[in-house]
Amino acid sequence: MIKRVEDWNYYELLNLERTASQDEIWESYQGALATYQPGSLAVYSLVTEEERALILKRIQEAFQTLRDPKTRKDYDLALLKRAPYYAPKAAFRKSIGKMEIDEAPPKKGRWSWLKRVFPRRKAAVDLRPPEDQ
């Protein structure tokens, strides 16, 4: 996935997993600071001064957010809300037989039409009151 520097989330920015511990966050932060600090050789001739300053600012924001468990939790929730929603496609509809998935779109075709028009007879429900014990 191609993303701009501005679009990287804090975990991507610091090369971290979502489950990273506080020690891992600190270690990644130190590494990122060394990479993007003023005068760093790693960005020499490839990254402009403006880009370097921007990414360094975002790295500091990322560390400030992730080091505090409360702000980190809020940020994680915000990330979850921003995550794209993929509707379930119910790919296994046929194979699971009786389990019908509500979100699955109605099937097209003659056989499906027949099944809709002539639904399967339901099992008779026993309406008798329970016997006295």
């Binding site: 060394a34 990479t35 490839l46």
Partner: peptide
């Protein structure tokens, strides 16, 4: 620091190239 610089160069190449 030189060892870390190597890691940084690979990281910058991954991000920008």
């Amino acid at each position: 620091r030189d060892v870390l610089l190597g890691r940084s160069v690979a990281d910058v190449a991954r991000r920008y190239l």
